[in-house]
């Protein structure tokens, strides 16, 4: 018998595959888990996140739903009430508004109004974010709605490693989680990475430092993390050292990592692609102003989308969204403050 051993070839995986693996592994691990959404069965979902799941787990556990986000979410709550764990897919996160009442009044409040008798292990996930020409109804980041609804966890991974580990953590969390996936990252080659072969999770509520720096802190999440990293590279060319923090989770929020960074840099900009007014960037800036004011040498700032919908064609779209140029310009203003 040949003793030849072949060294395993390192396989880099994209963000979408990472999500698919998380779902497949959790479905295998938990026989009382079910996935439901529009076109998620034979088709495998509009983007392919649920590819192959129905073939493995059957059409009773991977369910093609009518076009009714309210029924998708409401029935998921009922299943959770009766012992199951449910992944509810929104075909685009923009459509989550059609199920809004079931999320904020039914699901988010369930644990609270039953004084702890019931908890709801449901993950509502879907593709989010702009920069792809998706226009008004295929580009949204509406996370602030749900951050403003007590009882929901709200997360947004930016790497394949986090996408898999956080989705698994969300499915085991026991609370309702709104899971923002960045569709522009689904198949982005530059961020593909090797994933552990063993089971792992990335705990919700822990931020990650993506780049160390000492002059200014750029706080972001989702695809804007990459805009911040590109901005940091440009800033380095002009002698400004920027630290980049990826929040990963908005509720619960890792304030400590943010404040520790500001203690070092004394300057901070929060960057996100949601509209500015009452957005999460505003919330974070308020917390920094209240709790870390003594650490600051300049006013905390934000670079967000303008208070407009996301328009379709490229010049219009980029006009309203955060860009590397806009982040660099604001960083220079804050550094010189």
């Amino acid at each position: 018998m040949s003793a030849t051993t072949v060294a395993p070839v390192a396989v880099k995986k994209n963000y979408l595959t990472a999500l698919n693996e998380a779902l497949a592994e959790e479905m295998a691990r938990n026989p009382l888990m079910l996935c439901q959404g529009e076109d998620i069965g034979k088709l495998g979902g509009a983007f392919g996140v649920t590819e192959g799941l129905q073939a493995t787990y059957g059409d009773h556990r991977v369910v093609d739903m009518p076009i009714s986000e309210a029924a998708i979410i409401g029935s998921a709550v009922g299943m959770a009430l009766n012992g199951m764990t449910v992944m509810a897919e929104m075909q685009f996160i923009d459509f989550i508004s059609c199920g809004f009442d079931q999320i904020v009044n039914m699901m988010a409040t369930y644990h609270y109004r039953t004084a702890g008798e019931v908890h709801i292990p449901v993950v509502v996930r879907g593709p989010a974010g702009a920069y792809g020409g998706g226009a008004l109804y295929h580009s949204q980041m509406n996370e602030a709605w749900f951050c403003n609804s007590p009882g929901l966890k709200v997360v947004c991974p930016s790497t394949p490693y986090d996408a898999k580990g956080m989705l698994k953590a969300a499915l085991r969390d026991g609370n309702p989680v709104i899971f923002y996936e960045i569709k522009e990252l689904y198949r982005k080659r530059e961020i593909e990475e090797e994933l552990p072969t063993e089971d792992y999770i990335v705990p919700l509520g822990k931020a990650a430092i993506r780049r160390e720096g000492k002059d200014i802190t750029l706080v972001s999440y989702g695809q804007n993390v990459y805009h911040c990293l590109d901005a940091a590279a440009e800033l380095e060319n002009v002698g400004v050292s920027a630290e980049v923090i990826d929040l990963r989770s908005l509720v619960p929020l890792d304030e400590e990592t943010v404040f520790n960074s500001i203690a070092k840099t004394s300057r901070v900009i929060v960057v996100n692609e949601a509209p500015m007014t009452c957005g999460f960037a505003g919330e974070l800036v308020a917390r920094i102003s209240t709790k870390a004011f003594h650490l600051l040498d300049a006013p905390p700032s934000r670079v967000t989308r303008m208070d407009t919908p996301v328009p379709w064609v490229k010049p219009l779209e980029l006009h309203v969204l955060p860009t590397v140029d806009k982040i660099v310009a604001e960083a220079m203003r804050i550094v010189k403050f």
């Binding site: 409401g74 029935s75 009922g78 009766n82």
Partner: peptide, 17 residues
């Protein structure tokens, strides 16, 4: 009428079990 989908989910889960 907001509990009708919840009821549907409850009996779906019951049937699954």
């Amino acid at each position: 009428a907001g509990t009708i989908p919840v009821a549907a989910g409850v009996v779906y889960a019951d049937r699954m079990q």
